[in-house]
Design a binder for these strands. Structure first.
Lengths: 348, 348
DNA sequence: TCAATAAATTGGAACGTTCTAAATTGCAAC
DNA sequence: GTTGCAATTTAGAACGTTCCAATTTATTGA
């Protein structure tokens, strides 16, 4: 059907110039005369020329390949989708193309995907690592001089730039908010206990409890799968404790929604009978009933920031690792009530 | 820092064979002796060789580039994220790599992204077009022999394969479900009225009303932005109608959740005081309270199917356009109640 | 042992671009 | 008219792979 691919030589012939000139035009070089440039451009449009980036990358350093790889661990989680969108906006406006892949928390697939991106000559990589990723997996990549920015989950041991949100500060903020509303039995619900993020958030919980002069009770931290279903389960277990909590800060918003579901199943209304705080501020947090009080991390902003950092490193040629802790803020909505009356009086 | 790139020639030298042999090994050719193959593989591992796919694509037909482009119109909508994940699973297991990009409903960006993918020599493209996409935008692509599969939204006028869900059948099913529960004033809420999908779903609504012997009342279809906020707004307007509806089928699940929010704001409990049906069956539909009765389109399955179709076309070299309507099913949960008592008695 | 064949390997020419260094052109000043 | 210098343009050698045709090596059958 389609004839042989059009090359720069075909364009050159048709426009009556040399292939070098066409190449110069392609690169927007100031060396070529305006008249020539427009003539060449016209011929390209006319004949329907398609640039072959693969051939170009053969000559140019891969820093100019124009592809930014983005690898996320769970695309079905809207947090990561938002993150990718944030990266995309700045990457696109810098004239790069985003190459997004999903690992579904599978380290083998992550290896494949990263290898594949490397083969395609990416200019840089932004990665939210799968659980249990070995930092050494990225060693050869950074050794070969390709900038890498790690987001969301840090990979201790590797000399790579990273951006993670302020997990300890965020949870501490949430706990203190509940304390200010009069709560003293505060649970920490959800999350996989073997992850760095969990450890950080838990330590923020402990820190804030200590600083508020409240007793840290191991019973009050109940891990679970960090999902809505996990939240239902976690609140279930939390309610079996003899000295029941009156509020909880949750590992993330999904867990928090699950906790709300679980409370309703027990005929308790979240925000009135029990205070719940989430973490992430996913889009639904605003519109849920009750609207969720949560720690906002703004995944899009995080993505944009990661992209800027990566672009900086790409342009600098070689940059030293930079580790950023993204600030986080408490968004007060309805899920903790007004704190007017004593929460104890509402239980039962 | 890093020395010059390792090439197939370096490996050849180190392993004591010719570059051609190394190339053969790379391609898994049966022509090379087992002993040689393992020797070469060992050297590659040892020296840390990275395959340069760009150079390879220069020689091979782009059908072998191994990249599948996926373009979606809104990555922040989990429906499309799920779709992409579905595509990814089959694409990966076929040894291809997915190249996902987001257009955010912007046709200009869509053009850029598609052009960029073309430059990178994709083997095929799966696209969920941005609103108001001109089918002609894809003409040059298909003319050049690259297989394209359109998903979710059809592009009338173009000779491309497509997979869309059974919009008219789905909504009709939902309406008849409500009718069987005793409802007769049924609204159709949400959606942009200028889209093909809206037209199809609306026509399914009308068809089912007619077939059930119920009066089609223009007042009962109230469009809105297809989001949670849009749902709140739509139910608000629907409740101002003199002869109020007692149930609604919604443009999608997001709208349905918004409708639930709006009902609660009016002190009505969805599933008890008003029946609501969604469309899409997003993950939250199962765990929401009340669990949402909805039309399930299984985006992952749709993605897998699109990927299979695309791979078939890639392998066939040239395939004629195939248009698939993906079956859809009604998932009954709690948001329509049991239908035991007359819904009219519950209003007020 | 020697053909005859099969199996395995190989050199060199592509592929479509960029880059370097050199050649050509234009133009102002002599 | 030259000359000099800047502005444009260009030929040809890369880049790292695959493919073709040809060569070398192993295996078989007499």
């Amino acid at each position: 059907m389609s004839k042989a691919r059009l090359t720069v030589i075909d364009i050159a012939k048709a426009a009556g110039v040399s292939k070098s000139t066409v190449s110069l035009v392609l690169q927007g070089s100031p060396l070529v005369k305006e008249a020539t440039r427009s003539k060449v451009n016209a011929t390209m449009r006319e004949l329907g020329y398609v640039y072959n980036r693969g051939a170009a990358n053969l000559r140019q350093a891969s820093a100019r390949s124009g592809i930014i790889g983005v690898v996320v661990n769970d695309l079905t989680n809207s947090f990561f989708a938002e993150l990718a969108v944030g990266v995309d906006t700045v990457v696109q406006s810098a004239g790069f193309v985003q190459f997004l892949s999903n690992t579904s928390e599978n380290t083998d697939r992550q290896r494949e995907v990263v290898a594949s991106m490397r083969e395609h000559g990416i200019s840089g990589l932004i990665v939210s690592p799968a659980r249990a990723t070995d930092a050494a997996d990225f060693k050869p990549l950074v050794a070969s001089g390709i900038p890498v920015v790690v987001v969301v989950r840090s990979l201790p041991g590797a000399r790579m730039s990273s951006i993670v949100s302020d997990n300890v500060g965020g949870v501490a903020m949430a706990v203190k908010h509940l304390v200010s509303l009069g709560h003293s039995r505060i649970a920490f619900l959800g999350g996989f206990p073997d992850t760095a993020v969990f450890a950080e958030r838990r330590s923020g919980y402990r820190k804030a409890m200590d600083e508020s002069g409240l007793k840290f009770d191991e019973e009050l931290v109940v891990p679970s799968i960090p999902s809505r279903a996990g939240g239902v389960e976690a609140i279930g277990r939390a309610m079996t404790i003899s000295d029941r909590p009156t509020g909880a800060v949750c590992f993330n918003d999904a867990v928090a929604f699950g906790v709300c579901d679980g409370l309703r199943a027990r005929r308790m209304e979240p925000g009135r009978d029990f205070a719940v705080v989430g973490f992430d501020d996913v889009i639904e947090a605003k519109t849920a009933v009750p609207a969720l009080t949560t720690i906002s991390v703004d995944p899009q902003a995080m993505g944009r920031r990661a992209a800027h950092l990566l672009l900086k490193q790409i342009n600098a040629g070689k940059a030293d690792a930079e580790n950023i802790i993204a600030a986080v803020r408490l968004v007060v909505r309805q899920s903790c009530g007004t704190g007017q009356s004593k929460p104890e009086g509402k239980l039962g």
